[in-house]
């Protein structure tokens, strides 16, 4: 957002952030999402390993009779969540930016109310209403997930933009920024960690809610769960539930790591100690 800064010192900062991205520092931040993503892939591709291990405890009663294999279902699920998540973000983010403007007035409360209403509507009830209207398949689930994804992004972006510390606004205006520059150079970058948090909540909720898709023929990781429930087969349930849980955890921890990266830009390494030890020498 402010990457185009024409500053010499930025080159030095660049060198430092490259150092930060390499090696240990990179691993320290990113190992949880990496491990969880790996576990997710394993749970999809090599569920048979787990089944063998669990064999003595849980006996599979039915062979997984669904047309699709687990990998296909996982990809369906990912596609569903990615598509609806992107759509929610692309709709909610500009709306929140517009609603945060001073001129928005009553529109702000109206939009926030509408997004909150969509959130409070129970998934199953929404599905029951949507299926008669738009039929079975991807569409009803897609619409439902899109609506659920709106609120977290909208609310967090709105709150983030509205809670810019007043002294930053004062300083920015005093520097001669117009409203657009204030938004682009100060409000949005300061709100970025909060916006990302909204996206995280939105995606994680939708990964879980996406399981409902199986009930209306949209596929996804809900399929083995629903079949397993019908057949009273714990292994089959686990075949859908385990990847689903791991996917949600991986997405959550990935976005958390991204948030931490944004919130702590430039902090951390050059810590307090170096600063304080130097301070004494510099201000006699």
């Amino acid at each position: 957002m402010h990457g185009a800064t024409a500053i010499d010192g930025a080159a030095a900062a660049g060198v430092r952030s490259v150092a930060q991205w390499s090696g240990l520092a990179f691993l320290r931040r990113w190992w949880p999402p990496l491990v969880l993503a790996l576990l997710f892939v394993l749970s999809v591709s090599r569920f048979d390993l787990l089944e063998t291990a669990l064999g003595p405890l849980l006996r599979r009663k039915t062979v997984f009779a669904a047309r699709e294999r687990l990998g296909v279902l996982a990809l369906q699920h990912l596609g569903l969540v990615a598509a609806t998540g992107a759509a929610s973000f692309l709709a909610a983010f500009p709306l929140a930016v517009a609603a945060a403007r001073r001129e928005a007035g009553a529109l702000r409360d109206l939009l926030l109310g509408a997004a909150s209403f969509a959130e409070t509507f129970p998934t199953v009830a929404l599905m029951a209403l949507l299926v008669p209207a738009v039929g079975y398949g991807f569409l009803p689930v897609g619409i439902a997930l899109f609506l659920y994804g709106l609120l977290p992004v909208f609310r967090n972006t709105l709150v983030g933009l509205e809670s810019t510390p007043p002294e930053l606004v004062e300083a920015a205006l005093g520097c001669g920024m117009n409203e657009g520059e204030l938004l682009r150079l100060v409000r949005l970058p300061v709100a970025a960690p909060l916006v990302l948090e909204g996206l995280r909540v939105s995606l994680v909720v939708n990964i879980a809610a996406g399981a409902v898709g199986a009930a209306v023929g949209a596929g996804g990781l809900g399929v083995p769960i629903v079949s397993g429930l019908r057949a009273f087969d714990p292994v089959l349930i686990l075949e859908g539930a385990l990847p689903l849980a791991l996917l949600a955890l991986a997405a959550d921890s990935f976005l958390r790591a991204l948030e931490a990266g944004l919130a702590g830009r430039g902090s951390g390494r050059a810590g307090r100690q170096t600063r304080d030890s130097r301070k004494g020498a510099k201000h006699p």
Binding site: H2, T5, I7, D8, G9, A10, A13, P165, E167, L168, E170, A171, A172, G174, L185, V186, P189, V190, A192, R265, G266
Partner: peptide, 15 residues
């Protein structure tokens, strides 16, 4: 220049 300084936290000193 103001009392709270109002430095932008997401920018470096140079920025």
């Amino acid at each position: 220049a103001i009392q709270g300084v109002g430095l932008f936290p997401h920018m470096s000193v140079a920025e």
